[in-house]
Design a protein around this nucleic acid. Sequence first.
DNA 1: TGGCCTTTGTACGGTGGCCGATCAAAGTAT
DNA 2: ATACTTTGATCGGCCACCGTACAAAGGCCA
Lengths: 420, 420
Amino acid sequence: MYNEDLSWKGLRRTDPDRPRPLADAVLRLIWQKKRISRAEIAGLAGLSRSTVSEIVGEILPMGIVAEVGEGPSRGGRRPIVLEFQDDACVILGVEMGATHVVVALTDLRGRVLMWISRDHDVRTDPVGTRALIEELCAICLAAPAAGDRPLVGIGVAVASPVDPSHPDRASTVVLPAWEGRLGLDVVARKFGVPLMVDNDANLGALAEHWWGAGQGVDDLAFIKLAMGIGSGHVIAGEIYRGATGVAGEIGHLSIDSQGKPCLCGLRGCLVTLVGAPALVERAAELAPSFPDSPLAGRIITIVELENAALAGDPLALQVAQEAAAHLGRAVAGLLNIMNPSMVIIGGMLARLGDLLLVPLRETIVSRTLVSSVAAAEIRAGGLGDLGIAVGASTMVLKAALADSRLFPRVDAGANGVATS
Amino acid sequence: MYNEDLSWKGLRRTDPDRPRPLADAVLRLIWQKKRISRAEIAGLAGLSRSTVSEIVGEILPMGIVAEVGEGPSRGGRRPIVLEFQDDACVILGVEMGATHVVVALTDLRGRVLMWISRDHDVRTDPVGTRALIEELCAICLAAPAAGDRPLVGIGVAVASPVDPSHPDRASTVVLPAWEGRLGLDVVARKFGVPLMVDNDANLGALAEHWWGAGQGVDDLAFIKLAMGIGSGHVIAGEIYRGATGVAGEIGHLSIDSQGKPCLCGLRGCLVTLVGAPALVERAAELAPSFPDSPLAGRIITIVELENAALAGDPLALQVAQEAAAHLGRAVAGLLNIMNPSMVIIGGMLARLGDLLLVPLRETIVSRTLVSSVAAAEIRAGGLGDLGIAVGASTMVLKAALADSRLFPRVDAGANGVATS
DNA sequence: TGGCCTTTGTACGGTGGCCGATCAAAGTAT
DNA sequence: ATACTTTGATCGGCCACCGTACAAAGGCCA
């Protein structure tokens, strides 16, 4: 007759172990505003100046916020400017793709200090991949750009669904050789920091939300176009994972019941129409009609196809337009079901920009009933190839800003000392 | 470079106007457990017994919780049992369909005390509809079942998207005659209580989550099969509305690019295949192949079709199976995108039960890649025709349990007096 | 049956987070 | 130079909640 679940939200007032519940909120505000005075914090956070003074007094010794002189007067005493020290700590973001590993070292504002990409057959070699991640992380941390600054944590993006309640569990479907377990805790122990895992498309969405095209938009979808097609969702500012962490398998939306069979058993899945292999194949099919194209009559790669489209080759353009039309049908479905404010196209094909987006928008607008759905913005991602790795780092940053105990203590004198 | 939005969650500790932030949480716990002692509350809520005593002392005078004798001893003093008074107040739930209005009077546990359904052309007659709602509400409140108990509020379900930030705004697409506004505030003023509005499928999902097939499941989708097809979503226990309140237009998922054109401009929309008119039409198409069917050779209604299927008529069964197959493709897409733990089929066609569900499940299992997605439960709704109206009432109950100030004061002596 | 322990609910003093009032410092407006 | 503003620190106070202590009322066991 009624819901037996005990965990009605907000039953516990706050975590009793956590001193000063509002301190983290103030820290976030400082992070957001970057430079801000105590009085401004009081105004924006709805706290009294006395409370803010007290809280700031506790935050300063942590070393991630510093007083940096005085600001302009607004008719009275000049305020002391508090500045968030973006370079007080570093974060590692790891992208585990199907055939490559990217490690990016960022500061506390998502800026990439250095990065390394290495081809590796991740899918079949778990042991080697773990060692490679450890090696690349160590290289990043030893680099001058890291400058001895303490590490907050390591974020890892995997190209496989991640169950939020069992983050170390790996999908045996996507990564059979990994035997159901990522085993990244050894990496965490090696560096003595927390390690967090999530799906790559989710983290792409997060990165675009924090630093890219989706800033200020609280409900967005991110579609990663590559070999496979995945989508990640940010709802109300949070990553949405669904009940079992596999939300976003947009690649297997069935677009055309008469289409080609897909590995998943459906016919006409989006991935069979818009995945990279499908596009290459389609180009080969169309080649006889475009004898003048430099692509005609030979085996091509997806990168060549993209370059040709950017160069204006009619064959490549036709392939892109067809892909956009197929994708548009799926995105229309996505819009109808999820109703995000924005859809961001990421991954390799995002390079095509308007070549893909213009026909995509046309398809969507002409195929969506409710006008406010069709009004959703469709954009290309703004973060390039490092977007996923930066998203992984952002996940750690977000966690630390939600619970400042995750920030390592920085000795007070070291404010931005090691950057130079 | 960073998110300019100020409203980072949890910045304000609590609403300062609201005394005792935990009092509402305790009240919810009492509601949930129905009968519970102070000591149990302390244990479950993580509060001290002294605090609970104090809070309960404040709740008791409200009249919605009463001490009802002592419970069994567990080795010591016998506990005083607190009981939530489900019949202390009543709530009105209104379903505004396309061609009918349902008003249900419920207690504080979703039980229907009385209900009235009236056919009315809602779409074209806003003034008459408002008057009708007022009339039916007044009848319910004057009935013996209401017993003079105070009204908490009125919930209204409308068969149109509802923008959460402008709840009184009506879609001019679905309800053109209403000129963009519902104008239900007059009803609220008439009865002097708060009035809340949401989409019908959303409220169906809510009702199933609280009282029906979806109890204990925090992520579920509700699909309303009727003239149109709508879906509502509960995510993490809350109704999900999307960025502009139009999440769930599953009816216009494109299933078949070679299908019939739809009003929305797409081809092969789900509603053109599984909507009630489409099913009737399909039955007529198939009739020549089933000359023995009692349905053959004449114009039939959807209800007749349903009844025939339940009676085992091969023609009707074929129509149902085809519908299930089409619906299965859409639900597979929904599962891939949203990954709910459960999908609940409601609306008229839910009457068919396993006739629809069995082929539906088959389609889904054979057409979904990730096994945990396919493991989502597919069920028929458990609340029948009043589900939507009960959901509307539940919306009000939920709001009152989240902010107990919405409960009217009940004079202490009147505990369940008027029920007889 | 009496003693001892447990459980429940209440009373009371204490604590910690936050606020308002106050004040000094340092600026602007006239 | 005077009056007013703004900022930040300090101090006392309030309130929600906690822990302790205690009384009432039960069970367990000799």
